[in-house]
């Protein structure tokens, strides 16, 4: 299939790309645009390591076509820090919320969006709100602590 032109905002910057219609957004980000922070884990939309923000909501970029990002806004883990680390990034370090790091970009992208949807989540709400992201290393407990700690920090800043 002939490649088609798409244009979208990526981490605040307007970009253009040529993509095959069947191309998955995660491949465009990783291969064409060289942003390899977004990972590929299960390819069936279960593991969440490919989580990015698309038009203000969390999506699994392995199950979105690049064509569907056209004229949209995409944020990846590379766009999270703004001069200094985002509160969730800092909290994951402080609370030991990561080990091998492979799920981490997806976790962070989901966590920062969850805290916009619900700035003060309970443990239960974090568990449900993060349930689309798998981790094999941490047993989740320190990720929950990290999200709670980031929530506190963000509320203090607000």
């Amino acid at each position: 299939m002939a490649k088609q032109h798409i244009s979208f905002s990526l981490n605040g910057e307007q970009i253009d790309a040529l993509v095959e219609p069947r191309e998955l957004l995660v491949h465009t980000l990783r291969e064409t645009l060289n942003l390899t922070g977004t990972h590929i884990g299960c390819e069936t939309s279960h593991c969440g390591v490919c989580t990015v923000d698309l038009n203000g909501v969390s999506v699994k970029s392995c199950t979105v076509l690049a064509m569907q990002a056209h004229e949209g806004e995409v944020t990846t883990v590379e766009g999270l820090a703004n001069g200094e680390l985002h509160a969730v990034q800092q909290a994951f370090i402080e609370e030991h919320g990561l080990q091998c790091g492979f799920c981490t970009p997806g976790m962070l992208m989901r966590a920062q969006r969850l805290l916009q949807e619900n700035p003060d989540p309970s443990e239960e709400e974090i568990r449900w709100g993060m349930a689309g992201n798998l981790c094999r290393c941490t047993g989740y407990q320190n990720i929950i602590k990290a999200v709670q700690s980031a929530a506190k920090k963000l509320q203090q800043e607000a």
Partner: peptide
């Protein structure tokens, strides 16, 4: 809806 899939999938 709350018991369908997971948060990301529910956005799509």
């Amino acid at each position: 809806a709350k018991l369908v899939a997971d948060p990301q999938v529910r956005n799509r």
